[in-house]
Simulated scan of single mutants.
Amino acid sequence: MNFQTAIWIYRKEMKLFFQTYMGPLVLGGTAFLNALFIMILNFNGRTNYEEATVVTFVSFMTTILIAMVILSMGSIVEEKNKGTLELLYTSPITDFDIVVGKFLFGMTICLIITIFINGFFPLVLYSFWQAPLYLVISGSVGVFLLGIFTFSVGLFASSLAKNQMISLLIAVMVILTLWVVGYFSHLFQATTRKVLFHLHIFSHYISFSKGVLPLTSIVFFLTGTFLFLYLTIKVLESRRWRG
């Protein structure tokens, strides 16, 4: 890996993001949806910080999924369509550099959303509902981990697809599969049920909104992120071999 090359790709992605419509769309859209969901769900008869915190971070779960899927769905497929991916292949840049550079970009935007976009609402929880600070911190950690996991899924989908819509569909199908698999785990035997429930995204995420930093959930999101990044690299390598 050439770290300088990965940083160059990262800077290119950041520049494109803030100089095009994607910046206002993702950041502004996330802020708007957060406000909308929380106004509808959170301030409707909530009488304690436990309910308010869970509902707030469930809202964040929805918006970070949407934001990261939109952000990642064209990350690689647009390079293919514009022919810039072939230019990268002919330059001394490895597939690992490409994926790392793009992932660092996605991780940065996810961090910006978690701290500067979502951060306003936990402050409201902390001041208005008197929610303990550890709830705010643990929930924010959960949002960030879910965000980078979703972005890695979107990168993988983008490496497989021929256009952004197919990329979006692949990413949504993967997320939905991991979303609903836990609800059907009770239909299977004990060992299979345990495995399927472990793959359930919601069961891992919701613990963070309750003030817990579960090691199994942290490991789940991090290993899932690395797995999809690895698969993305392998897809790009196979494309390079095919010419």
Rank of each mutant, 00 (worst) to 15 (best):
Y183E: 09
Y183T: 09
Y183N: 12
Y183P: 03
F184R: 00
S185R: 05
H186N: 11
H186I: 06
L187G: 01
F188D: 03
Q189D: 15
A190W: 11
T191L: 15
T191D: 14
R193L: 04
R193H: 14
K194Q: 11
K194N: 10
K194F: 01
V195G: 10
V195A: 14
L196E: 03
L196W: 07
F197A: 04
F197T: 11
F197W: 01
L199A: 13
L199K: 13
I201K: 04
I201Y: 02
I201W: 03
F202S: 10
S203R: 14
H204L: 12
Y205R: 01
Y205Q: 00
I206G: 00
S207T: 08
S207A: 13
F208H: 10
K210H: 13
K210P: 02
G211P: 02
L213D: 10
L213P: 10
P214C: 13
L215Q: 05
L215Y: 08
L215V: 11
T216D: 14
S217V: 07
S217Q: 02
S217T: 05
I218R: 04
I218Q: 08
V219Y: 01
F220I: 11
F221N: 03
F221L: 10
L222H: 09
L222R: 08
T223M: 09
T223Q: 01
G224H: 05
G224S: 06
T225E: 07
T225S: 05
F226Y: 07
L227P: 04
L227Y: 13
